[in-house]
């Protein structure tokens, strides 16, 4: 169990959640069924979810409720989703949001 997971909260009890596996940038990870991608990744200490499309600067979860769009990641078969709202499912393949190339300025994809 990751050290960031809260297991004994004095006031909030959550039901048992099944452990499932998913991948992030090709790496196989364990998460709890139904939790959003961003929470499952943070439990493993992973905060960088996206590189800014233009500058490539690192971005992570900011609002956690679908307002800010900072946590956009790519999910195989679904395209771009918000990692804070999208529940993980068994076998899900997640890839970080990437810096894009720009043919006008000549910037190449990293």
């Amino acid at each position: 169990m990751s050290k960031l997971r809260i297991v004994n909260h004095p006031l909030i009890k959550k039901g048992e959640q099944k452990r499932i596996s998913f991948t992030f940038n090709g790496e196989s990870l364990e998460g709890l069924e139904g939790e959003p991608i961003a929470a499952a990744l943070l439990a493993h200490g992973i905060r960088i979810l996206r590189r800014h499309e233009e500058s490539g600067s690192n971005r992570g979860l900011y609002c956690a409720i679908g307002h800010c769009m900072e946590c956009r990641v790519d999910v195989q078969g679904k395209g771009q989703v918000r990692a804070c709202l999208t529940p993980i499912v068994e076998g899900m393949e997640v890839v970080e949001g990437k810096q894009l190339e720009n043919k006008i300025t000549g910037r190449e994809a990293p």
Binding site: L4, I6, E35, N58, G60, C63
Partner: peptide, 25 residues
């Protein structure tokens, strides 16, 4: 404030009390 690890206070609340993952150490 755009660095990963910076979040709105509501995000810290949702992580901690809804998803039950601490926002950090």
């Amino acid at each position: 404030w755009t660095l990963p690890g910076v979040m709105s206070i509501g995000a810290a609340q949702v992580l901690t009390n809804v998803h039950m993952v601490k926002p950090g150490d």
